[in-house]
Design a protein around this nucleic acid. Structure first.
Lengths: 208, 208, 208, 208
DNA sequence: TATGAATGAGCCTTCATTCAT
DNA sequence: AATGAATGAAGGCTCATTCAT
């Protein structure tokens, strides 16, 4: 069996520690002992806590960035199906990376410094995505298949509903288990609810 | 004019500091100097940072707890109106307390220790509220005015959509200003969108 | 008997440590234990090592700055006497502050950063002093009482000969004691020699 | 073309680093990377930083030791010429090795430990040189060509005046350029001044 | 010889908390 | 009640030195 290299062990431990506690509350000594290495090793490989953090941060940011738009790129699918798959795909992604939302909120949204570091990138990506969505939405509205909606609102609706489930999980767990039997079952139900509410937001209703 | 007592001044300063920075990043020295009192006074009155924090925490928690259910208690209003007013009222409450969501997320949701402190309280309040909502929803469904929904999902939908706007505000600001002209205008639009999406979630559609 | 305040004790200990070892080699822990206080006290009063150092540095610099020109300001004395008294006075000053030259050399001359901090001050003071000296020297030369010399050279001659005795004292001690009986006797003789060589530099000789 | 051996490369790099920064501020990692070798090699060859330093130190000390007495060994030259050439030769030597004085002062004079390491050697060499000088001076004085002077004083005069120019160069530069046009021109002038003041110290004057 | 990795000691600094008055 | 002073624990980081290969 392959031994994990210490450099990697530090990185893994750092990821765990930073995701769990955030930058300030994370201690390099904890990371080191979590990785099973001498405290100085951490600085040997990554020089500073900040440095080590950025390694984690950038990696995670890239993952998050990509997670929302993957299904919108498929030209074959009908629009509503794209949306549904996006909601589901994004939900599944978050489920597979449960620590991520909290990390991004803590480090990206709550820290002006870090946000401004990546603001330009976010602006660009957002702009492109929104323009593409706007075009598709316009076309669908004209064809009468969906009700009008500002693209940025749709995006926020989806992201919000999905992300917050995982952010609030510790709190929701108080009710989830006794109402749904298990966290797993709750998440299934919640995923359906998110699809449902988004679909209903888009579909044309009686009186429209 | 009444001089504010030192004990109170510390409390106010602590509230400001804790809301702004969270428990770890808040410094007792900052709180003291913000309150205009000697650093040692803070410990004289509240003994530990933890202790002082809890005073703030419990107070804030109470406010948050009440904010969601205020309109549900009005027996006069028709159900959908109750819901609409709840969404709007909750949104306005958050807008008036912009630091609150971040604080609660950071300190309550992200810290197992604190959560377990108040878990029982939350469970009780939640149970009662959910039962009441369930009864009303059932009645409405039977009357054919709304489509069925699990009460806990409705609650999560509302809370999520409202709260997250304010949590994610720094990030959303990147797009808000250039799309809506100002943060203020964005928030107006967003409030409408939240009402819209919740209403649509509840209304009966064509094919149902 | 008055107890020395801890703040002062730290300052004194710092002076001793910094003069003896220079900024880098001085340790805040040493200073603290030398002052008989807890290590954290040092930071309580002076926040940083750099800060504490600057307190010492500026004080010493002021003293050094004044030490060379004190006798030149007396308008009553004949020029050669002024020079003689300056040499002697400067020598005595250095003798009373034996650690000073080394400190100034180490911290001021050998560290570009610190030098540039005070460069402008030094330039101004130097300029004024040199101009005054130049006027007096010119007058004396015209009266035939001294031989011509560039003022800056005279200044360097005096400063060099005096300062270096104390800088090199540890080395000179190897010979001083066995040649002159004691360090004290050596310094007396050396002071005379410095006066002698400066006077001879200025006096008019046979063939001039 | 001969490849420089790694052992030698380390030595050269160490010389540069130690001369430039002194023992404490010099880092073994810097020396290694300056030498283009692995950090551990340095310890492989020289075991400790101290050890490596001593190699440099002793070599430099030998050079310095010899630099002052070279012209005194020439039996052909008349005494005053010997002195003049010594002053000039020593000055030129220092000019060619500008880092040396600072290094010696820092490491030899300011560090009791190092001084005591070489004290005996210095004592012996000094004694011999001084005795030789004493004999020559005595003879010259008897012949009436020079005024009496204690040999050790003459030695100190010369060494001091020459060395200090280079020690204080950063400080002197503040005035040198604007008074003499360039550092080069200042050094020329200063060399003449040093010869002048030493010669005048030795020459017989009017009233003697 | 050579090297990447590893270690331990030490340094500066911050901070919550306590003490003496 | 109030305060300046004091303390201990901990954190991030650097560096000379050693180890394993």
């Amino acid at each position: 069996m392959e031994e994990k290299t210490k450099e990697q062990a530090i990185l893994d431990a750092a990821e765990q520690e930073f995701l769990e506690k955030g930058f300030e509350a994370a201690k390099t000594t904890s990371i080191a002992s979590l990785a099973g290495v001498n405290h100085a090793m951490l600085h040997y490989y990554y020089r500073t806590k900040e440095n080590l953090f950025n390694k984690i941060f950038e990696k995670k940011l890239g993952i998050v960035r990509d997670s929302l738009f993957v299904f919108f790129d498929d030209p074959q699918l009908p629009f509503l199906e794209k949306v549904q798959r996006s909601v589901e795909g994004h939900f599944d992604f978050l489920k597979a990376n449960p620590g991520l939302p909290r990390f991004v909120i803590n480090e990206l949204i709550f820290k002006p410094k870090r946000l401004s570091q990546v603001e330009e990138t976010i602006r660009k990506i957002g702009k492109i995505s929104l323009q593409r969505m706007a075009a598709e939405i316009d076309a669908e509205v004209k064809r009468g298949t969906i009700t009008p909606i500002e693209p940025v609102h749709l995006l926020i609706d989806i992201a919000t509903l999905n992300v917050f489930v995982f952010v609030a999980m510790p709190l929701l767990n108080i009710f989830a288990v006794e109402t749904f039997g298990s966290e797993e079952r709750f998440l299934e139900a919640r995923k359906k609810e998110n699809v449902e509410i988004i679909m209903r937001r888009l579909k044309v209703m009686n009186n429209e």
